[in-house]
C-alpha cells in the first residue's frame, strides 16, 4: 500500500475540522467526484468523532491517527487510537429507526464505505480500516 497521508492529532473535537480538510485533499488527489468526496469526508469524520466520543469519552489527551493509503484500486483509511479494545460488534451498523437520533454515525460509515473492519495488531488500541473503491479512470 502506498501511504498518501499520515496525520496524528489530539483526541479533541476541535481537530475534526482539520482532519476533514486533509481527507478532502486526499480524495481530490484520488480523483473522486464531489458527491463522493463529501460522503467520504463525512464517513471519516464520523469514525474519528466516534473515537473521541466513545473511545476517549471526550478526554482530549489521547491520540487519533489517520493514515490514508492507495492500494489495489481502493482508497484505504486507517484510524488508529489508544482506546480500550473494541470488537466487530461495536462497529456493526444498527438499523436506523426514523425519528430516533442514535446510531447515525455508524450507519453513515457503512453506507459510504465498501468495507469497514478492525485490523488486529500487537499494539494496544484499535485500528479501524475503511476501504472505498477508487473511481475508474477514463480511457
Amino acid at each position: 500500500m502506498k501511504l498518501i497521508k499520515n496525520i496524528e492529532c489530539d483526541s479533541c473535537t476541535s481537530k475534526l475540522c482539520s482532519i476533514r480538510a486533509d481527507v478532502r485533499e486526499a480524495c481530490l488527489e484520488f480523483g473522486f467526484p464531489d458527491p463522493d468526496i463529501n460522503s467520504i469526508v463525512l464517513a471519516v469524520d464520523e469514525a474519528c468523532a466516534n473515537v473521541i466520543r466513545y473511545g476517549y469519552k471526550y478526554c482530549d489527551n489521547g491520540s487519533v491517527k489517520l493514515q490514508i493509503f492507495a492500494a489495489d484500486g481502493e482508497a484505504v483509511f486507517h484510524i488508529i487510537d489508544q482506546c480500550p479494545e473494541i470488537c466487530e460488534a461495536d462497529i456493526t451498523a444498527k438499523p436506523v429507526v426514523d425519528e430516533q437520533p442514535g446510531g447515525l454515525g455508524l450507519h453513515i460509515i457503512h453506507q459510504v464505505m465498501d468495507r469497514v473492519h478492525l485490523i488486529e495488531g500487537d499494539a494496544s488500541g484499535n485500528t479501524l480500516e475503511m476501504r472505498k473503491q477508487l473511481p475508474l479512470k477514463e480511457a
Binding site: 463525512l42 464520523e46 468523532a49 425519528e99 430516533q100 437520533p101 442514535g102 447515525l104 454515525g105
Partner: peptide
C-alpha cells in the same frame, strides 16, 4: 457547508 450526525441528531431530537 457541513453537518455531521451529531448535528443531525440535534435536529431529530428537536423535531420530536
Amino acid at each position: 457547508a457541513y453537518i455531521d450526525s451529531s448535528g443531525i441528531a440535534a435536529l431529530v431530537e428537536s423535531f420530536n
